[in-house]
Design a protein around this nucleic acid. Structure first.
Length: 382
DNA sequence: ATGTCC
């Protein structure tokens, strides 16, 4: 087990296998976060990669101080998995593509939006128009089919029927979280906030609102897509991977920040690969405090965004990239984004998931294959 | 990442 959890210092470790792509720059960023005031322990997940200052795919456990910049701008970003009633065997990609339509703009059904906002405890505010939209970057909505079953009982316990399509939504709090972080940084810079002060309490209140908003947003994205494709569905799981919460780690009370780190103590989760790779439905096998009760949140970037187009445009066209090696379709009519989110730009999901398996942290429940990935209908790029 | 930068 120790083989897959590598100690970087007395308070930093990273979960990885020999096959896991890992950049020195990401490890250096992780080690530098371990030096922050009040930091007790940091843990890199196998999808760890460099971020803007702080690494992505990591958890940070501090005492008495919280750091909004460690959570980042997309407070509440996470994954929601929905079960649909569409038979995977009946899918016709052209038809599904057509029916999915365009969900880039604000949700048309204001009644649905207001109802969801109320149910999820989202306060009326200026960001309501973003509810039901995916956003940019690595966010997506993806129809998937169950490709391999490793634990049939666990699937049925979750209410999953393997013959039907699943819908995975990766999105967050959109402009709301962005505004919360920006206002914090404008006032306090990158300093942390002392827990117990009014400013810390104010941030935590706003952060809580962003978590509710993000969850509501994922739900509306899913419901919107289901309406468009004339399907019914139910939410199976919804788990944030960018947030901070009080926690007891190794017998010590403190604050656990997650930046692209999925909690291991909130039931089964999906660890998605790139749009051209599998995703895995997994469940935690043990509560590991050394790795800060966290799991990978995806494959993790291998290439920085700015390098992707140069490396790929000679090899492949946007049209070619609308189809993946697994036979799935990609809706991404944004010339830049389609390169930035190319499967080649991401670590192989098996090298990430196998590191977690090797460390004894997870058990695989099912392998999911992409069918259709929605990024943006955008403008036509051909 | 961003009702995003020219």
């Amino acid at each position: 087990m120790g083989n897959f959890v590598k100690a970087l210092s007395d308070r930093a470790c990273v979960v990885m296998a020999d096959s896991t792509w890992m950049e020195d720059a990401a490890l250096a960023q992780l080690l530098s976060t371990a030096q922050m005031e009040g930091m007790q322990r940091v843990a890199g997940m196998p999808d760890l990669h460099p971020g803007r200052g702080n690494p992505v795919g990591a958890a940070f456990f501090s005492k008495d101080i919280i750091y909004p910049t460690l959570v980042g701008n997309d407070i509440g970003c996470g994954m929601a998995l929905w079960q649909t009633d569409l038979l995977a065997s009946a899918v016709r990609l052209d038809k599904l593509d057509k029916r999915v339509g365009n969900i880039d703009g604000p949700l048309e059904d204001l009644q649905l939006r207001a109802q969801a906002a109320e149910v999820q405890g989202v306060q009326p505010g200026e960001h309501l128009s973003a509810l039901g939209t995916i956003g940019g970057g690595n966010h997506f909505a993806e129809f998937q089919q169950v490709d391999a079953i490793y634990a049939a009982q666990a699937l049925s316990d979750l209410g999953l029927s393997p013959r039907h399509l699943l819908l995975l939504v990766h999105s967050g709090s959109r402009g709301l979280g962005e505004r919360i972080l920006r206002r914090h940084v404008d006032t306090f810079g990158h300093r942390g906030l002392t827990v117990g002060t009014d400013v810390a309490a104010a941030y935590l209140d706003e952060h809580e609102a962003a978590l509710r908003f993000a969850r509501c947003n994922r739900s509306l994205v899913a419901q919107r897509l289901l309406l468009n494709v004339r399907a019914q569905g139910e939410c199976v799981l919804d788990v944030h991977h960018n947030f901070v919460a009080s926690a007891n780690v190794g017998g010590q009370d403190g604050w656990l920040h997650r930046k692209g780190a999925t909690p291991s103590d909130q039931g089964p989760v999906v660890i998605p690969g790139s749009r051209g790779d599998y995703s895995y439905l997994v469940r935690s096998r043990r509560l590991c405090h050394d790795t800060l009760l966290s799991l990978a949140h995806g494959a993790g970037r291998k290439w920085i965004r700015s390098a992707c187009k140069d490396r790929l445009f000679k090899l492949t066209s946007p049209t070619q990239m609308a189809r993946t090696a697994l036979g799935s379709r990609v809706i991404c009519n944004d010339r830049q984004l389609i390169y930035e989110e190319a499967p080649q730009a991401y670590k192989g999901i098996d090298s990430v998931v196998q590191a977690l398996v090797g460390a004894g942290l997870i058990e695989l429940l099912a392998r999911l294959k992409p069918v259709l990935t929605y990024k943006t209908r955008g403008e036509c790029c051909e």
